[in-house]
Nucleic acid binder design. Structure first.
Lengths: 358, 358
DNA sequence: TTGTATGCGTTATCAC
DNA sequence: GTGATAACGCATACAA
């Protein structure tokens, strides 16, 4: 009854109803054992008689802790980000932090606004996946900040072991004795962790005296940009390395998948002259017409580590002085290689890929 | 300087620094024109001299409006949900509402906890995509609730026009003169909007005297469940309708895509004896080896409509009495058919699909 | 145009 | 074990 238009029931109401003081009601919630069991029962009854619902906003004001964490994610259409967000949000059950999520659009001014809004809501920590704002700026925030797979010179971070991941990928191609090794990437600043995929590829090739090349495609992720770019790539490779066995390491599964499709459209099968490895272990790599070998970033581990790191920094900040905030940590989560059909040893027919990590 | 360990600057500090009262400082933010330009300037200077940052939590307590909206989404690995979430979050720039997001896990007890937590944070409205809690329960909340594509008997909702979408899909297949029409779905309660896809399919087939069948697969969305199910489906269809032209309407692109892949693996091309239409217009339908015709739900429109509806109900609730809350609205957003390669008229070779809606 | 007083719903500090 | 009172930071009648 009387739902909606009446003011909320408060400690005051419970207090006057039960004859206790507000303080006692508060204690019922925060330190129940300090009340006699009998009085606990009285209050419990009053609470549901009056249909009380707690107001955590008031509690925030009084205690100074919001249990809010801000998240800025560049987009949600890439599986990588939506899954990362998913994993982060799922930590609620363990840590109790509530997440205020903003999706960036690449505009630094907008993201600054988001940041202000987040700070205005007294977030206790921030997880940044967007690349838009430099870490120097983020580091000046008065709260702990943890980044994931972005430039992290001045802030804590947790990233995938891109370097090792790339090496595993080429190494797998290498085991197939290709004539030439090609890494397909998009223009990547040296400052972001993903740049290590290029380094890993290059180092491995050099160490093993492999003929290799790095090709950069347009960074646009839209289908209308990827599709023709990949088509052109195929033409070029056929011209440049006719009759040779080509080992391709793509920096993302999306492009690997698009390339594979062109290949199969052209040859009606996965030709022996191509070996493919992608990156991300996104669903498309598994669900592709020929399941694509790929490098898994272990998103759940990364998310978990990021939240854990952030929480511990938040707790440190509670007790510590300003000095303790200087501690910047960079964590790396191992990558895992998934061998699938695009690097099968025995032909390329209807092989039965396990989909299990190597 | 002195970052972190010092208390925040408040209106009190600004007031004593400038000689004004707290009220005037407050007015500077909420009704600046009521101050003389000169005094505005004085305060502006003080604000950034003292490095003031607003505290919206205190403002909430004083004004009673949080500008928080709760979201409960069943998961984020389906593109449909992550894109919907993306579109909802993007309305921040227009409406200013902040979103507190929870990912459900199918456990009603958990979702009730999420709900309590959301209410404790004084959310002004709720958007529900999860199916876990019955709408009767959600309707008892003292705030406006809008659902998207779920059982909505007792709450407002915005849904895709599943019925028309399904009819468009079969109609497209019909234009290809198939011998038999098959709708592939998963077990679907009659209470959820998606059930209309079944009705739309059945009605169209009956009205046009089409030989048809509805096949239900396991509802599990995992690859390990879908892949063998789809393989089995193909075998069955080949046995049951040998040599006949089959028009398949899938209730989701994921299964349509999996089926297409089996088909191409078997025939090395998209055989003329099959016509496929999916549902959702998810990226995979476009990026598939043969782009799949599908029904687009217009996620951006649905998201926008849901938020708009919620906001207007929130505003009504402000002024109106409890009675105004009784108003339940059910909005339907039109579906759009995308014709692509799996329903091409002229053979099934390397046709150049436009990817544009019909 | 500006100030005073009070309230928002809770927690924290003392008392008793 | 329990209660009175003062924060927490801001908004809003009501005065002036």
């Amino acid at each position: 009854m009387n739902k909606g238009n009446k003011k909320n029931v408060t400690f005051n109401d419970i207090a006057s109803y039960t004859g206790f003081s507000k303080t006692t009601i508060s204690r019922y919630f925060n330190n129940p054992d300090s009340l006699t069991p009998k009085n606990q029962e009285i209050i419990r009854r009053a609470l549901d008689k009056l249909n009380y619902h707690e107001n955590k906003v008031a509690r925030i004001l009084a205690r100074g802790k919001t249990e809010f964490v801000g998240i800025i994610v560049p987009n949600l259409y890439l599986h990588y980000f939506s899954e990362m967000l998913n994993q982060i949000l799922s930590t609620y059950n363990e840590f109790g932090f509530k997440y205020l999520v903003f999706v960036g659009d690449g505009d630094p001014e907008h993201e600054k606004k988001y940041l202000e809004e987040l700070m205005a809501y007294q977030i206790e920590g921030l997880i940044v996946m967007s690349h838009t704002l430099p870490s120097s700026e983020l580091a000046s925030l008065p709260i702990p900040v943890v980044s994931i797979e972005r430039e992290d010179d001045f802030i804590s971070s947790v990233n995938c072991d891109n370097y090792a991941g790339a090496r595993m990928a080429v190494s797998l191609l290498h085991s197939h004795q290709c004539d030439v090794y090609i890494h397909v990437n998009t223009p990547t600043p040296e400052t972001i962790p993903a740049y290590n995929r290029i380094l890993g590829f290059r180092d491995y090739c050099r160490e093993n005296d492999l003929r290799h090349e790095i090709i950069f495609l347009d960074g646009d992720v839209s289908f209308t940009a990827i599709s023709p770019a990949v088509e052109k790539l195929l033409d070029e490779l056929e011209n440049r390395y006719p009759g040779q066995k080509k080992g391709l390491f793509f920096s993302d599964d999306t492009r690997a998948h698009a390339f594979l499709n062109r290949l199969v459209r052209k040859y009606n099968t996965l030709p022996d002259s191509y070996r493919l490895v992608g990156f991300d272990n996104s669903p498309i790599s598994r669900d592709s017409i020929y399941p694509i070998s790929t490098v898994d970033q272990q998103i759940p581990l990364i998310a978990r580590e990021a939240v854990t790191m952030l929480v511990s920094q938040i707790e440190e900040a509670k007790k510590g002085t300003a000095r303790s905030r200087e501690t910047i940590r960079h964590e790396t989560v191992p990558a895992v290689l998934y061998q699938r059909d695009t690097t099968e040893l025995y032909g390329s027919g209807n092989s039965c890929a396990s989909g299990l990590p190597s």
